[in-house]
Each structure stands twice: as C-alpha cells, then as structure tokens.
Design a protein around this nucleic acid. Structure first.
Lengths: 213, 213
DNA sequence: TGTACATCAGTGAACGCGCGTTCACTGATGTAC
DNA sequence: TGTACATCAGTGAACGCGCGTTCACTGATGTAC
C-alpha cells in the first residue's frame, strides 16, 4: 500500500506534531513510539521509515517546539518602535504567566517542558535544544532593546533578557509543579513573578512601583 | 537472615538517601527499584518490606530532598541581624548559581531536579513536593525580611522571595540544560542571573548598580 | 538467665507487561521503456 | 500515452529487554515462658 510522496511527508509532519505535543505533556519517557504513531493516525511499524530512532524523533520534536516558540517571540521583537515592543512584551509576559498557559502542558514553552529532562537525553536532542535556546534568547534580547532603530541589543539588555527568561520559566515551572496539590500557591507564584517583572520594567524605561517616591 | 531493627531502619534510610540522589540525577523514570536497592547495598526483593510501591519511595525521597533544602535555607534565614542575613543570602545565591552546583545534579535543589516531572507523578509525590515547596518558600521569605527583630516577612518581601526563587531555579535549569552542548551559553546564563539578583538587591536596602545616579 | 518458637528483613527466581526495534509482507506509486 | 516492473510507506506480528511487583524460602532476631 505505497502512498504518495506528499502524503508520506504529511504523515511525517503529523508524527512530529504529535510528538511535540505529547513529549511536552508527558515527558520523553511518558509516551512511546506506538502511542505517538497512533496519535498521528498510523501504526507503529512504519515509524522507522521516517526516523532513525526514538531519539531522532525527540530531536525533531525539540526543533519543532522551538520553531513555534521563536515564531511567537519573534513577533514580540519585530516592531520598529520601542513602545510597540514594550507593549508586545508586556502582553507576552501576561500570557506566559497565565493560568491558561500553566495548564496547557502540551503547548508549553520548551524550557519548562523539557528543562529537567533534556540533559538526560541523547546528544542530538541536547544539540537541538541548545540551538533552539540560542535562537530564542537572541530574539528575546532583541525584544528588550530600547531604541527605535535597528540597533542590536546591548550586553546589558541581553543580560536582563536572560534574567527575565529565567524568572518566567522558573515561575511557570514552579506554578505548574504545585498546580494540582496547591492551586492557591500556584496562583501566588504566577502573580508574584508577574508583578516583579512588571515592576522591574524590563523595557528599560520604567521604574519599580515600590521605588522610593 | 533476620537483622536488627536498628539495622533495618538504617537500610531503609540508605535506600531513601540513594533515591534522593539518583532520582535527582536521573529522573524518577531513569533509575529502577533494582538499581536503587543495589546502590544502597541490598537486593531488590526486599524493597517492599520498606515501601508500598516505587511511588511511595518517590514521595519519601522528595521529602528527604526538601528536608535538606530547608535546612540550608533555614540557616540563611536564621541570623538575628538583617545585615548577617543579607550576607548569608548573597553567599547562597553565589553558591546556587555556581558551576559546581550546576554540575552536581545528584545534589541539586528539588525545584530544578523534579520541577518538570513532579506534576506527572502520583498524588503522594505531588503532595510531598507541594508541602516541601511551601516550607522552603516560607523560609526564603524570612531570609528577605529587612528588620533586625523577629518580624514576619511582609507581603512585599514574600512576593520578592517568590520571584527571586523563580529566577534562581529558572537560571539553574536553563544553565544545566545546555551545559554539555553549549558551555559558554550555560556560563552566561549563570552570571547574568546572578548579576540581576545582586543588582536587584533582594535584601531590600540596596540599589541597582545601573540605577540613575 | 535459659529455652523454644514465632517473626520478619533480606534473598533471588519468577511473573506479566510495555517498551524500542526488526521483519516479512502488501499493494499503490513512481519510473523506465 | 500505455505497459511492466521496481520501489517503498504502511501494516501487524514478533523479538529481546528491563521494568515494577510477587513469592517461597532463609535464618538471625525478638519474645513468651
């Protein structure tokens, strides 16, 4: 039952998409080859027509997830005017630290979904992850540059981008880890981190709300 | 070959200690019952004399790891004088965001080691984790209170404690995830987060190094 | 204190199960003429 | 354009393996007298 080359490529994409969702939701070890193929509407035997191994798919899924992530943050970094970027960034923070985003584990950002596991995976997965994170951080730093022109972010802006990303990812991870067992604490974590980031005015022009008057 | 009750209790402790280390290093799914028992110098058959299930040991290991963590942060929160706490906190941050701590995966803080996985584990594990995190956060907020007396931390100090913890855990997690594939980026993440936290002066009395003069 | 026996922590073989991977097979697609 | 055949994506059974868990057994410990 040979099928069209185009159809085969679509099938491969569906497997990668299913993996991108299910690996984030259940972890790399929490879903098997058979389950992934089934989620893509196929049987498990054909898996090795598309991928060298499960590791290979993990790397492909990692790339796919970062591709989505960089697309989102790319839109935040894109506006010409600094004020527009600041607005986009503020909206991004609020979305990132929302209950909706906390509970959408299958659509999560890769840093939170894969963070603890990626260093335990095979080398191609780690390479794909590192490459994705570099791209993501470069864009995030660009989103923080303060001028209206095309200037690259300063080292100071890059430093703050890294710290802000650590706070975002750390807070989402903490909030998610206690979401079921202590919803109140989970909420407190989200709102506290958000308040800190708003107060710290990552766009470089604002001031802390609690700063001495 | 029945053994002393005291010896049996010591054996149980050794299994929990091995699990606390190996679960952090390899993840809950990365080490099996047989491997854990072997690491404690026993054979796997006796496992169920001490624990109801692997889940049960996971919860016990989680408690153990938080017991260690709260002991460390408790020492930071303990000093009577605010300046002593500030010094202890600064030392804690530098230790937490060091290469040594990044590479010591088996001795890691539970937020980074278990963060992504804990919400996928059985309920007792999530309960143990949530209880541990509450205790840890309470102490961390106490470490940030600014007065010399016995005063509880203010809501503002608690908020900043949560945000600082998110930054610490997020940065360590990011740094660890790219440690092998991109050591330079890993280092940059550690130093950037540390600089941001030093600048933000979490003890409440300092000022940002980049604040307008 | 000494004796007799029940208890139970530890052992290692065995279980059923799900995993990643391999394989012979199918039959529509792609291609050579 | 039509025909003949090689290709190869997909199927489902089968593989070896490691996992969590169970079990009959051992023998020193703990206890009742």
């Amino acid at each position: 039952m040979r099928i069209t080359k185009q159809r085969a490529a679509e099938n491969r994409s569906r497997v990668v998409a299913a993996a991108a969702e299910l690996f984030r939701e259940k972890g790399f070890g929490g879903i098997g080859v058979a389950g992934l193929m089934h989620a893509a509407g196929l049987t498990h035997g054909g898996f090795y027509n598309h991928f060298k191994s499960k590791d290979d798919l993990e790397a492909a899924a990692c790339e796919e997830v970062f591709r989505q992530g960089t697309s989102v943050i790319g839109a935040v970094a894109a506006p010409e005017k600094a004020a527009d970027r600041a607005d986009a960034l503020a909206a991004y923070r609020r979305r990132y630290l929302s209950r909706r985003s906390r509970d959408a584990t299958g659509a999560s950002c890769p840093m939170v979904a894969f963070g603890a596991d990626v260093s335990r995976q095979a080398e191609p997965v780690r390479q794909a992850y590192a490459k994705g994170l570099r791209a993501y951080l470069d864009l995030f730093a660009r989103a923080l540059r303060s001028g209206d022109g095309d200037a690259q972010p300063t080292p100071e802006q890059r430093r703050r981008a890294i710290a802000a990303l650590a706070t975002l990812a750390g807070a989402l991870s903490l909030a998610r880890s206690v979401a079921k067992a202590d919803p109140h604490l989970s909420e407190e974590i989200l709102t506290s981190a958000l308040a800190e980031l708003e107060g710290a005015a990552p766009e470089g022009g604002g001031e802390r709300p609690t700063a001495p008057a």
